[in-house]
Each structure stands twice: as structure tokens, then as C-alpha cells.
Amino acid sequence: MPVTDVTTDPEALTMTLTAEFDAPVERLWDAFTNPRQLERFWGPPGWPATFPTFDFEVGGRAVYFMTSPQGEKSYGSWEFLEIAGPQSFTVLDNFANEDGAPLDGMPVMRVVFSFEPAETGSRLVNTTYFASADALEQVVAFGAVEGSTMAINQLDRVLAGLREYAAGKGTQTEILDDTHVRITRLIEGPIDLVWRAHQEPELLEKWMLGPDGWRMSVCEVDPAVGGRYRYEWEPVEGGEGEKFGFDGETVLAEAPRRAVTTEHMTGTDFPSTLNDLNLEEEDGVTLITLLIEYPDKETRDMVLATGMTDGMEASYARLEGVLATV
């Protein structure tokens, strides 16, 4: 992972994040000063960022918000104080309302983004200066250390490009913490088709089948927020196994990039998971990122032990074949 260290210093009133990347300083600078690239990594998993305003000049402002799986938005703003590209830039960082105005009573921070050469290619040193120990403690309590670490650890795929980052690696499963798992798979095909393949029953029935030997016998989908879905699988004639299914509700839909749904095993009292699907396109390929939130570690481990990753890889490989015919 790129992040090598995050330290807080109550005496100096600072929090410092250090990360190293296999990319030149100029490429790292571009990632932090292009809002479309910032959006691909700035928010931690489950809270992707959007920068509707980005006026990159001294005295200019950037306004951003991060959206939770439930659709809640957390706003922030930067005022650019100093710019010395490609070595550094400094901002005044505020918690903000939906108009980008600073929130009363919340900490205001000065943040320095420094980029320097390193043996691996380049190094980011991100230093946040606080006005008081209470402000530092408050921001740390909000989860700033964990959130910033997870966000910056997503930057590798932006710097490398999606093909170099994920091509040929199949379905990858990462355990992020006790209740979160991230699954990624690069798909040959444009984002619009990959989105349709996750929403339209006539396409879902062709690829979301898991291992060979199964068929989808029920596929009912209402992709609108508040709409429900139901899937059911059964073995093909002569096959072994008992039919099973999942049902749930659409919580968030932002076509063609994000859909959040609950998932419950039909006919059981097992707790539901929250499935956060994100799609990202570059150079004719689409990266599927599925963030799954489990109710507890035990449920997470039980599901992973079923061979879920192998089943998803079989489905995703089938998806590429389906997209080639659409």
C-alpha cells in the first residue's frame, strides 16, 4: 500500500501522512490538481468525492462533497493559499455546507501537499496544521487517520491507469476491516454497457450465474431508488445442489457509475449486507469495484469461505463474452 506512515503530533499541532508511488513527481502533481482525477481517489471507500468547483489559482477555491452509500453528503472546501508546481500547494481546509461556506464551530486547517522524488518514483508528504490540540483531537475522532489512509491507498490505480493496474488479474478480494470487503474486476467494455448488464434482466440472466452448472431461474429488478430486486438460481437439469436466492432494495442509484443495494439471502434470517457498486472507465475498459459491508466479522468470514471470489470470477468472465455480443 502507498501510505507508509500517518503521525499526529499534539505539541506541533500537526497530522502528517506520507506515501510513496511508482510514478514521477509530475504525474503525482497532475493527480492532485486535476479534479476529475481527484474524484477517483480522494474519498475513502464508500464515500467517493465529487469536485463541482475547482479554481486552481492562488485565492481560488475548490468545493467538494463525499457521498455515503445511503446518499448522505459531507461537504468541504479548499482555499488555495500557495501554489509552487510541481513541488507543493497549500490550502485552507474547511468543513462546509452544501453551498461551500465554512461550518461554524468546526475546525479550520492549513494543509500542505508536498511532492518530492523518491527511490520508488515520488513521495507525498501531506501535513495538516491545526489551531489547537482540541481541533486535532476532534478531527482524529472523526476518523481522519483511517479515512485519509484508505483514500490515498486508492491512488495507485489512478497513477498507473486501469489496464496496467488490473488487466489480467481477474477478480481481486481485499479485506479492508472487520466488516468491509472490496472486490475489483477489470472488464473489457464501456461503462454504459457494464451498467446495463447490472440493471437489465435480459443481460443479467446471461452472466450472473456463478460456477458452470447453474441457471438463473428468477430475475426481477426495479433499479429505481426504493425499488426491490429478487434473484434465484438452481442447478441445470441433472446438476447437483439446491436452489437459492437473494433479495434486496436499491438504496442509491447514480447511473452509470454507482448503485447501492441491500442483499439478503431469501428465506433465511441471515442479516443483510450493503453492496456498493462503483464503475470507472478508462481507455475502453471498465473497473468494477464492489464494496460489501457485513454486519460483523463472523458473517464476513462465513461468506468468504463459500468460495465467493471464484464464483464471481466465473460470472465476470462470462460478462465479458456477453458484452462482446451486445
Results as ranks from 00 to 15, higher is better:
residue 274 L to A: 04
residue 249 E to T: 15
residue 269 D to I: 00
residue 244 F to R: 01
residue 269 D to E: 09
residue 266 T to K: 07
residue 267 G to I: 01
residue 254 E to T: 12
residue 241 G to A: 06
residue 252 L to A: 08
residue 257 R to A: 14
residue 270 F to S: 06
residue 244 F to Y: 08
residue 236 V to E: 08
residue 272 S to M: 10
residue 275 N to M: 13
residue 256 P to D: 12
residue 254 E to L: 15
residue 271 P to M: 06
residue 239 G to T: 08
residue 245 G to T: 01
residue 276 D to Y: 01
residue 259 A to P: 00
residue 249 E to Q: 10
residue 271 P to C: 09
residue 259 A to Y: 09
residue 256 P to Y: 15
residue 263 E to P: 03
residue 258 R to A: 11
residue 234 E to C: 10
residue 235 P to K: 10
residue 252 L to Q: 05
residue 242 E to S: 14
residue 247 D to K: 13
residue 251 V to D: 06
residue 262 T to G: 10
residue 261 T to S: 09
residue 257 R to L: 07
residue 251 V to P: 02
residue 273 T to E: 01
residue 252 L to N: 00
residue 239 G to C: 11
residue 255 A to P: 11
residue 274 L to Q: 04
residue 254 E to D: 11
residue 272 S to N: 04
residue 267 G to S: 03
residue 253 A to M: 10
residue 234 E to P: 02
residue 270 F to G: 00
residue 251 V to C: 10
residue 238 G to T: 03
residue 251 V to Q: 13
residue 275 N to V: 15
residue 272 S to Y: 04
residue 271 P to L: 09
residue 243 K to I: 02
residue 273 T to G: 03
residue 239 G to Y: 05
residue 252 L to M: 08
residue 243 K to F: 11
residue 273 T to H: 01
residue 254 E to Y: 05
residue 267 G to N: 02
residue 265 M to P: 02
residue 239 G to V: 09
residue 276 D to L: 03
residue 249 E to L: 07
residue 268 T to P: 01
residue 256 P to C: 14
residue 239 G to F: 10
residue 246 F to S: 11
residue 235 P to L: 11
residue 239 G to P: 05
residue 258 R to N: 06
residue 249 E to C: 02
residue 268 T to L: 05
residue 234 E to Y: 07
residue 262 T to I: 10
residue 253 A to Q: 07
residue 263 E to I: 13
